[in-house]
Amino acid sequence: MSTAKNINITLKIWRQKNTKTKGGIETYKLDNVSTASSFLEMLDQLNEQLVNDRKEPVAFDHDCREGICGSCSLYINGRAHGPDTGITTCQLHMRMFNDGDTIYVEPWRSKAFPVIKDLVVDRTAFDRIQQAGGFVSVNTSGNTIDANSLPVPKDDADKAFMAAACIGCGACVATCKNGSAMLFVGAKVSQYALLPQGKVEATERVLNMVRQMDEEGFGNCTNTGACEIECPKGISLENIARMNREYLKASL
């Protein structure tokens, strides 16, 4: 790209050896970062430099690098997935930063997401919530009814899809001042609540998933709406409201 240039930056990165030890912020200088690089490519560059200097590279989660697997996290300059909206960290590009910038890079902070190392956190709490009820209890035999025998209104199908677009990255928890996971759980509950296939177990599902969510130590939702803004997939707060409705229905 002809508009790309090189910038020099200062990084303040959280380093922590493992879950048990205490961590702290360390400062690194990195020169000649192409503004066409993605944020993670910038970290690759830093790690290459660290390894060549015989220093320990920074550990961070990442995999698909196209914004869909939900592996990458990072709290960058005070914002989940950095200073841009509708994207994950792997889609954040260095052109969002200026020459001479100081950039803070921290792991997701939540009691339910303990730090494993440096910027890597353990998000298996999300898996356990899913295991508590995030499914339709149907056997995998393929001997179900024909896919078209149960019409689903397009509007419901579209809404279910938009809820199901959640990538489980945990940005909602990270950005929420209460460390609440309700956007994640609300999205999953909504997806099934909107589809006829999911309605059969709706009551147990919402009760079980919320119970598990509470047990994991996530905070409570106070409707600040920060999660919706920082969600890379734009999951709507409506899904939390829908979960609240479902929970009320299930409780009464």
Binding site: V136, V138, T140, T144, A147, A157, A164, Q197, G198
Partner: peptide
């Protein structure tokens, strides 16, 4: 059929 039964929102 299987995926629709599982709640995949096609």
């Amino acid at each position: 059929d299987q995926c629709v039964a599982q709640g995949v929102p096609f």
